[in-house]
Nucleic acid binder design. Structure first.
Lengths: 222, 222
DNA sequence: TTTTAATGACTCTACGGTCATTAAAATGAG
DNA sequence: CTCATTTTAATGACCGTAGAGTCATTAAAA
């Protein structure tokens, strides 16, 4: 768990406010560093430099590097989850909700550069894995996300609005598309890949990539 | 470039054969380690242990850790590229080729556990990146792959068989689906995710996820 | 004057890489 | 074939370094 989950309550003391403020500043700095490096590759020295403080200062606000990264993952993850959740809560058919969800997630590519490096990094449960606590937290956030989207797919399949398939697999595939867009944006130096990818992904979801024509192959394949 | 690209030619000396054999043994061992760890996270000690030799021995066959990983990436990458290429060279419409390509790539999820950790790791060109040579090689292999698939999409779009869209973006999206399947397999502990995902992905490509019904929303969205 | 926050030089550890030592294999003279 | 000698391969103790984490000292605030 993150060492400081500072809600700035109205009755907070001056000290608490200051601490929360510094904590956030450090996390924001860490985010910019993490946008370019993997969690393992980024150093506390770099983070400190980005935040304009000395390395030791970081340890006044976080117990360890692991703790800091965990806080970061939690922060960003909660944001995404909140937005995803509310886009599914709003009224509409499952298809409507899916489209809203995709838009929201793609939106994060621009607002949160962090989304890409963190959430594009795939982590495996179980054996041989880095025991670092922040990956554990990362898996937790992922699982919450997957559950959420899976419930949408389940709903849509039951309503006959989506093709019948393992909803969990569908969730992974959908996330794959989002991540691919993020990677496209970074790797190709695109300014706003989300804008370009949104219509393509929506078309893909609603009618596929291959045009229905007099070519019989793809209709019968498997 | 890899220090030893040992083709075992008929006229090879005994020594060359032995060296090539050991080199391959080490690479194979490294592959099993890499299936569970990131390249940065795996240690030379681990690789040596997996290969049943001492750490120093590795340096008789490779100049450095970087060199070893680079050889590994090259080896696997060339395999994938060769198969992808031949699946595109065989006769058929672009749609046929696409379907073959997807089958081939999904096949790698079982044959090459390595595919996942290496090729799932997204690397960004340019600034702030690890300068490790093997990532450079990785980007090279990726670029060759992307070019290859992009040419297929270009062909298919010009033939009017695929929806009009940036073919490079489409390539990234397709790869995202493959990677997502790999991740699904590992994260969910599925035995043969490829088998399960193949029909879903093909349906997605040929007619989308959302069923064409009397729901107007998705048909007009964007 | 006291209390608190910030600092950065320092310690400790893990890992990449080296190399003197040792074991094994090749050679070849009798 | 066999044993002494040379050549080659393998080893793991050791070195250097990078980076996480500490803490005595200093600066600022109360």
């Amino acid at each position: 768990m993150p060492s400081k989950e500072m809600k700035i309550s109205p009755r907070a003391t001056k000290k608490e406010i200051l601490t929360a403020f510094r904590t956030r500043e450090i996390l924001a700095a860490a985010r910019t560093v993490l946008a370019e490096r993997s969690p393992e590759a980024m150093t506390m020295e770099e983070i400190a430099a980005a935040a304009g403080v000395a390395k030791g200062t970081l340890y006044l606000y976080f117990q360890s590097k692991d703790d800091l990264i965990e806080a970061l993952i939690t922060q960003v993850g909660e944001n995404i989850l909140r937005d995803a959740e509310s886009s599914l809560k709003a009224p509409g058919t499952p298809a409507d909700k899916l489209i809203r969800l995709v838009s929201v997630l793609l939106g994060y590519l621009n607002r949160e550069r962090l989304l890409f490096p963190i959430y594009a990094r795939e982590v495996i449960r179980g054996e041989g894995q880095s025991r670092a606590g922040f990956w554990q937290r990362h898996l937790e956030m992922e699982e919450r996300f997957v559950s959420l989207v899976t419930s949408l797919f389940t709903e849509g399949i039951e309503a006959g609005q989506f093709i019948p398939a393992n909803p969990r697999l569908l969730t992974f595939l959908l996330r794959g598309l989002i991540r691919a867009t993020g990677y496209y944006q970074k790797a190709e130096g695109q300014a706003d890949a989300a804008k370009e990818a949104l219509p393509v992904i929506l078309t893909l979801l609603s009618s596929g990539l291959i045009r229905r024509k007099q070519s019989p192959t793809e209709e019968t394949a498997l």
